[in-house]
Design a protein around this nucleic acid. Structure first.
Lengths: 346, 346
DNA sequence: AAAAATATAGGAATCGATTCCAATCTAGAG
DNA sequence: CTCTAGATTGGAATCGATTCCTATATTTTT
């Protein structure tokens, strides 16, 4: 048994602490801490000695201890409404890259479409003492929302959400202008019965799209048939059954706008089931479809906004907030990209 | 200014600590801690009093302090190779649900396809003292991998990866059997030139698919044309250009197997560009395509494995590991689902 | 050369919890 | 009625870092 632990002083299961480094370098805890956190007023000799020992021992600071004592974690929490939506993952990715560039790490938590889980997630981030939060909320009328925004104790940036009675940073897209363009373009081609299927009213994008939709109809002197509006959930099944109903009507719409991935999927399935071809039998515009689906559906017209820009901008607003800036709102423009699926005139 | 802070004793920016609760309830720190962590040997009177005060003050424990002292965080880190792959998000979602059911929370970190970032992510999870790690590795030959597996200080579960020289838990899919079935089915229809386009060799799924592919060719007494094999990256652009090359050959393949999302996208684009229709001009089988794309492409044959099962199983293995179980490997079966895209006989 | 200013290093308090140990209290046994 | 075992509670140490304060070493100024 002699020499068992001779090679390394580390016992299995024991983790190297700053104390081990201090002993190894024959220095005080405070000196080691100063070296490792890059403080000034440290002699070159001490710096080299400590760094060498820390390296040799494979020292990695305990983030919990650091955060506890110093109050900062250089960690940002990203609360995502639904991790399976590829749009969110693109935004999250871009955001994380920007944060990383600035020395922050990002942890992602999924709310799985539930305001209850979202509430738990906010609580968890508070307990974890993250330095900031970026969130794509499940709903703006969540009963927990106000409390979570008020008690966060750190800067928050919302993604595509508006909470009017609170002064809070947000990155929002100008959906309405893109939708306006799209509708106008369809009207020019002779369409007058245009269906809009989109998420529920308790989030900003829906309301904002509706705004552009309404304005376009006004400017074109067209009535909006109330049954052409389906506002009530991002659910693909909902969009599917609603589209089927619309298609079976005597005065079926000649054009469809799909708000979000769920609507896109549901409508597509309805078309497929009825053997309807986009761009031929009916005009179709996808709102906010993801770049990666566009690779497949290269012929689908879309109202586009850049998820990368959105993610980066969110990171930037948050970083500014961390430096003490007042809450601010940043707007990402959208644009109507006309492709085959909406081109055929009626 | 009178009465400014009268309603609540909380100062702005100050967070309620266990000490505040102790003072409010006129009890010792230890008693409060015992109540809040559900220890036995606490009188009913004390329990009620402390809980009431904690509730009133809106006390939320500092997770960093808890973790520092107790050594457990009830947090699992999920390291994901590429967050934009919908297959991974489905797995992560299922995994997170199972962990949550067991009182654990999960934080997701994206490696963005880079072994360097993956290495940083492992380091971060170590510093954070998570209780366990679930990972879909970027590569099995990452220079940092061995170190990260050895120094994790917690149970690890790998997703669809094999690291043979380490005893470590994993959930892997039996890709080869599904691929075998698929190839055999194609052979029966008269195909003899079957192309396989898939990711690089440094991850298990590729090798495992290749295994099934090879075995099927042997059993069918067919040669594998080496130029029909494209093993070299999940990149859609790579798959695209390679497919174009194949299609331009004089003896072009009559069937394509696409391994993973990237290959699927690249090949689809090549088909589209050459106006080739799947199931008519050429047979096509998608390996591991995501349930959500299947909604669109209801007619595409696929080798399917259940991502939900995979995620849940990973969570279960990890939880068992936390309770002291030895590392174990769990296999998820795949099945060939024949649909229109591979049905037409040649 | 003595005094003042500054650079460097060490000691101890602290962050907010958990947990061990000892003290007190209660209840049941003898 | 006394003694002992067990239930409760409080006090203090501890986890691993940071940071403030003080003591010494070094340099600069007069």
């Amino acid at each position: 048994m002699v020499g068992d632990h001779s090679g390394t002083p580390r016992k299995l299961g024991h983790r190297v602490t700053i104390r081990d480094v201090a002993e190894g370098a024959d220095a005080a805890l405070s000196s080691v801490s100063r070296v490792l956190s890059g403080h000034p007023h440290v002699s070159e000799k001490m710096r080299i000695k400590v760094q060498k020992v820390a390296e040799e021992l494979g020292y990695e600071p305990n983030l919990n201890a650091q955060t506890l004592r110093s109050g900062v974690s250089r960690t940002i929490g990203f609360v995502v409404r639904d991790i399976n939506n590829p749009l969110f993952t693109l935004i999250a990715q871009a955001c994380e890259r920007e944060l990383r560039r600035n020395g922050y790490s990002m942890i992602l938590i999924n709310s799985d479409g539930s305001v209850e889980i979202e509430n738990q997630n906010f609580s968890l981030l508070r307990k974890r003492r993250v330095d900031g939060i970026i969130a794509s909320l499940v709903a703006e009328d969540s009963p927990y929302l106000r409390k979570n925004l008020d008690s966060a104790h750190c800067p928050i940036v919302l993604l595509d959400r508006q909470v009017s009675d609170r002064n809070i940073s947000a990155v929002i897209a100008n959906h309405s202008s893109g939708v306006y363009e799209a509708v106008m373009s369809l009207v020019k081609l002779g369409h007058s019965k245009i269906a809009l299927i989109t998420g529920s009213n308790n989030i900003y994008p829906t309301r904002n799209r509706l705004e552009g939709f309404t304005k376009a109809h006004q400017d074109a002197n067209l009535e909006i048939c109330s049954n052409l509006l389906a506002v009530g959930g991002f659910d693909a099944d909902y969009a599917f059954s609603h589209s089927l109903n619309l298609l079976h009507q005597k005065s079926a719409p000649t054009a469809f706008l799909a708000g979000g991935v769920g609507a896109f999927m549901g409508i597509s399935r309805a078309f497929k089931k009825n053997k309807i071809i986009m761009g031929k039998d009916v005009a179709f515009v996808a709102l906010d479809t993801l770049s990666f689906l566009e690779l497949f559906f290269a012929n689908i017209s879309t109202v586009y906004r850049d998820p990368v820009e959105m993610g980066r901008e969110a990171a930037i607003l948050l970083l500014e907030g961390l430096e003490g800036a007042q809450p601010q709102v940043s707007v990402i423009e959208t644009q109507f990209v006309e492709r085959d699926s909406s081109k055929g005139s009626i």
